[in-house]
């Protein structure tokens, strides 16, 4: 464990998993949406559903969707701030099959994009993105991460690795997830270095690549 995971982080309480982790989930989901969230349906599962109010998990997720950091002192007022900023949200509970106890399912809508994400808080502020648009994934957003929605066809992984190699960016991991053969796929690429914005633009122009989002919230 990093030294400053032991002495730190500086965070708004009361719980690293139920508060700080929840802020982080909101923030990462906002980045995956890729634009301001105008409407959010938030569904809590398990321990999040049972103890979410007492831990401020509800306020924390909304704060994250407003792009707040885990140490932002405005987290307790996130509901009011969201309303002032024109973000509508609803919060309820859901019973998901085989999900981590600290799980939230979110349906987000922006001006032109929408997305459905299931994420869990693993403890100590660490999180996992478990599902995007009904496709199972598994990544922590602890690295600069590229999320590529593409058609499940040969050659997409090669586009990505070639482009990153040209920019001298080292790939820490690359995983591909799909709903069915020849259907839709999601490629998650974690890198050691931040990814320049032009790479994302170039990738989006490739045939068969539907959408590219970039998450860098380290």
């Amino acid at each position: 464990m990093n030294l400053f995971d032991i002495m730190g982080p500086v965070m708004v309480g009361p719980s690293s998993s139920h508060t700080a982790g929840a802020v982080r989930i909101g923030r990462v989901c906002l980045r995956i949406l890729g634009e301001k969230a105008e409407r959010a349906k938030i569904h809590f599962h398990g321990s999040f559903a049972l103890t979410g109010v007492g831990h401020g998990t509800d306020k924390a997720v909304v704060a994250g969707l407003m792009d707040m950091e885990t140490y932002d002192i405005r987290i307790p007022q996130s509901f009011e701030l969201a309303r002032e900023n024109g973000m509508e949200f609803t919060i309820d509970t859901v019973d998901l099959k085989d999900a981590h106890p600290n799980t939230v399912l979110m349906e987000l809508k922006g001006k032109s994009k929408s997305i459905k994400i299931q994420a869990s808080s693993l403890g100590g502020g660490r999180i996992s993105i478990d599902e995007i648009d009904n496709i199972k994934t598994s990544f922590t957003a602890e690295y600069p991460t590229l999320v590529v929605h593409n058609e499940d066809k040969a050659g997409h992984a090669a586009h990505v690795t070639k482009m990153l190699a040209e920019k001298n960016i080292n790939i820490a991991s690359l995983r591909s997830y799909r709903d069915k053969r020849g259907g839709f796929a999601i490629m998650v690429v974690e890198t050691d270095e931040p990814i320049p914005i032009e790479v994302i633009g170039e990738l989006e122009k490739k045939e068969g690549i539907i959408k590219v989002t970039y998450v860098n919230v380290i």
């Binding site: 500086v10 708004v12 309480g13 009361p14």
Partner: peptide
């Protein structure tokens, strides 16, 4: 108490034990 009241604290090593150090 500050932790329980959603104030900013230093988790050391955790939020629940932030008062000790």
């Amino acid at each position: 108490e500050s932790n329980a009241c959603m104030r900013c604290i230093v988790a050391a090593p955790t939020a629940g034990s932030c008062g000790v150090i």
